[in-house]
Every structure is written in C-alpha cells, then in structure tokens.
C-alpha cells in the first residue's frame, strides 16, 4: 500500500477524455516521476491530487483518507505540499515572513484568530523559520522583499516554504520548466539534497528527461490520459512503448 493511491480516475472535458482509468501508487519514501508527452494529462492528474479538479469517477486515497472533494487547504493540512511551475510565493512580504506563514499554518491549522499576539514574540516559529532558511542557504536574504529575488532563489524559497511544513508528500509540477541549464542543475542538486537529508516522499511531474533520470526512483509514463508503464528508471529508458509514445522526442 502506497502513501498515495490513485484508483480508476476518469476525467472528461467535454468531448476530450483527459484522464482515462488512471491507477497510480506512490510508495512512501520514494521519488516517483510522472512523465509523458504534451497533453498526456499530467497537469490534470496533478490538479486532481491537490483538490483543484474533481474527477468524474475513481478514488484518490492519501495516508488512508480520501482527498476527493476536499479543498486545497484541507489537502495541504493532510500533509501534501505543492511546488508550482512558476514559484508561487508571497511577493510583497519578506523572505522571513514567507517562511513563517507555513510554520503558522502547520501549528495553528487552517484558521486561528491570533490577532493580539505579536509575531516578534513567536520564538518557536521564528527559530523554526530561521533554521529552514539556513538550511537552504538563504538566511542572509531574510529581510529582502521576495519580488526582488532571482528566479532560482524564488524556487529555493518556495521549496523551503513547503519543506518547513514537513510534508508527507511533496508534489513538484515541472520544477525546472523554463530554467537555464545552470538553474536546472542547481534545482536538481537541491532536490537531491532534500531527498537524502530529509527522506521526503516526492511526486514529480516533469518534461525534462535529464531531471527525471537523475532524481526518480520510480517512473510512470502517461500517454493520452492513461498510464502506459510503471517501472524503475533503468527499465523505462529503452521501453518500446515509451519510445512509441514520445515518437519524435524518442531520444530516451
């Protein structure tokens, strides 16, 4: 039994079958990549997992509980954090405030009316946020407003905001999309470091084969809304079905 169990998911948009009978199992303490050509349904699947889309049928169980019909903030509170294609951070706030917010969310839940306590007096939260920032080498940027950060730092910060919640599952939506070569390498290094240091379970949706094969421990190939194969990376590389799905891109 995996920590995330997707069973028989179907989703239609009008006449288009975006997801057809998708089964997927993400084991605890692995990095599971979901790959596939454009339009394979990767993003749709991800949106189902985080509660943004409700499938027509099927079930999604996380840690023994169904996530279907729950709102994104409830799913996060269950232990799933998400990293976006373009980093979603609080742009008008400082780096430190950005990291404090998930700490509060983790401690106090989805809503708490703590309107008279001072954020300066929250010693525990501050220490936690500081430790996290030190961990991703951003402590010296703590008082910068995040809109002035470089793209790589924004990605790093978003990652820190997810990690500080100590999630049971980290979802990554094309974390290196549109990045320069050097930034991509940095992100891979960061993810590897997170993986070895914290042993966090990750599900990555990715286009870049370089990223996939340097990180993934298990790979699911999606094509036209259905999983084609699921296996370890070594077996995926030369798989005929995968070559077929990728057609022109078949330098796998």
């Amino acid at each position: 039994m995996g920590i995330l169990e997707v069973k028989g998911i179907n989703k239609r948009f009008g006449g288009l079958q975006a997801l057809g009978d998708v089964n997927l199992s993400v084991e605890e303490n692995t990095v599971h990549a979901i790959i596939g050509p454009n339009g394979a349904g990767k993003s749709t699947l991800l949106n189902v997992l985080v509660g943004k889309l409700i499938p027509d049928s099927g079930s999604v169980m996380f840690d023994g509980q169904s996530v279907l019909g729950r709102k994104p903030h409830e799913i996060n509170q269950m232990g799933i954090s998400r990293v976006f294609q373009t980093p979603e951070i609080f742009t008008d706030l400082t780096v430190f405030e950005n990291v404090m917010i998930p700490c509060f969310a983790k401690r106090d839940g989805a809503f708490r009316m703590h309107a008279v306590e001072s954020i300066f007096a929250e010693k525990g939260i501050r220490a936690q946020a500081e430790e996290m920032l030190a961990d991703v080498n951003m402590l010296e940027k703590r008082d910068m407003v995040t809109s002035s950060l470089s793209r790589g730092d924004k990605r790093r910060l978003e990652m820190a905001m997810c990690l500080v919640q100590d999630p049971k599952l980290l979802l990554l939506d094309e974390p290196t999309a549109g990045m320069a070569r050097a930034d991509t390498e940095n992100t891979i290094a960061l993810l590897k470091e997170i993986r070895t240091k914290r042993g966090i379970t990750m599900a990555i949706i990715e286009h870049d084969m370089n990223v996939v094969f340097s990180l993934a421990e298990r790979i699911t190939v999606l094509a036209q809304g259905t999983p084609l194969v699921e296996d370890i990376p070594e077996n995926i590389k030369g798989h005929p079905k995968v070559r077929e799905a990728y057609l022109g891109e078949a330098q796998v």
Partner: peptide, 18 residues
Amino acid sequence: LMLRAIKSNQTRMSYTGL
C-alpha cells in the same frame, strides 16, 4: 501577517493549508 498574505498571493495561501 495572514491578512497581508491574502493580499499577496491567495493561491499560495490555500496551498499552504490556510
């Protein structure tokens, strides 16, 4: 701080469990 977070980015807000 949460109120300022709402002004800044509601998507991140909800994906942070708030």
